[in-house]
């Protein structure tokens, strides 16, 4: 345990140094991150305006609140492991990581968290500026704020586990780009990124509630905005924990099988 703490501290330091070295890449990532919620926010704000101010109870300002929070939660949760893993495997860069005495996942977690902490410094002011442009209406109470914390932490853990598992597919298929994009499209829609779940057609909404994606993004946002009943919040937490358990089991299985496969490909 102590060793792991040391590892994380060292990794924090190297990542910070690395990221400061590549400030340009950082700025580029942020542009992409910010643009997407702004697109959907603009679309739905236009719809609300053309309907005389509100769609299904969402005004343009409600959409602003929803999508700006989506931006923050998406930023907290996103990973780049699906691209990185493919690169590690294709180029053989995974080998030096495997001979280290700790699981490479720790390195990635540390990298990821450091990157988030660093970039939050930029993301929060950007969200505030966008807030002035789009004028969100928040109704956040202490209770919803309190429930938001575990919801977002679980969402981050769940997304990390799911995406790490999907990234392991690269052990079997050497070019996984198409799969990554497929995942991205599914996520866009079923996570509540393109629209709040309430606006989706009934069957899609039900599907989204059963699948894990909504629990990684839309759920924490709606918890914070107080859009869910206490019962829905409880069900949501249960779903997050259940899916996280499933994802962790899958992660272990695919990883164990994957590295066995890898020695055959990389040598």
């Amino acid at each position: 345990m102590i060793d792991l703490i040391h590892l994380y501290r060292a990794q924090f330091k190297t990542t910070i140094a690395e990221q400061f070295q590549y400030r340009g890449a950082l700025v580029i990532w942020l542009t992409g991150l910010i643009l997407e919620p702004v697109i959907f926010l603009s679309v739905w704000a236009a719809v609300a305006r053309s309907q005389g101010g509100a769609v299904d109870g969402f005004t343009a300002n409600d959409f602003a609140a929803y999508f700006l929070l989506t931006l923050i939660v998406d930023h907290a949760g996103f990973t780049w492991i699906m691209w990185e893993m493919e690169y590690w495997i294709r180029q053989g860069n995974l080998s030096p990581l495997l001979v280290r005495p700790v699981h490479p996942i720790h390195r990635h977690i540390a990298n990821n968290l450091t990157f988030k902490l660093l970039t939050m410094v930029v993301v929060i002011p950007v969200v505030i500026v966008l807030g002035f442009v789009f004028r969100p209406s928040f109704t956040i109470t202490p209770a919803t704020a309190l429930a938001f914390v575990p919801a977002v932490v679980l969402a981050m853990a769940l997304r990390f586990a799911v995406e790490w598992t999907l990234a392991s597919v690269a052990f079997w298929v050497t070019r996984v780009n198409a799969l990554n994009q497929l995942y991205y499209v599914v996520f866009l829609f079923l996570a509540g990124m393109a629209a709040p779940l309430a606006l989706l057609p009934e069957p899609v909404r039900i599907l989204a509630e059963w699948l894990p994606f909504y629990r990684m993004l839309g759920f924490p946002v709606e918890v914070l905005l107080g859009r869910l009943t206490p019962q829905q919040v409880a069900v949501g937490f249960a779903a997050q924990i259940a899916w996280l358990t499933v994802a962790l089991v899958l992660l272990n299985v695919t990883w164990a099988r994957g590295i066995r496969k890898y020695s055959a490909v990389g040598a």
Binding site: V43, A46, V47, S50, Q51, V55, D56, A178, Q181, L182, V185, V186, L188, F189, A194, A195, L199, L200, P201, V204
Partner: peptide, 25 residues
Amino acid sequence: IQSAVGLVTALLGLGIVFSKTDTLG
């Protein structure tokens, strides 16, 4: 699969938007 999903998503997106309005901008 990806093209199909992309298309379905785009159409579904339009479907949701136009289920709530007649014209978009």
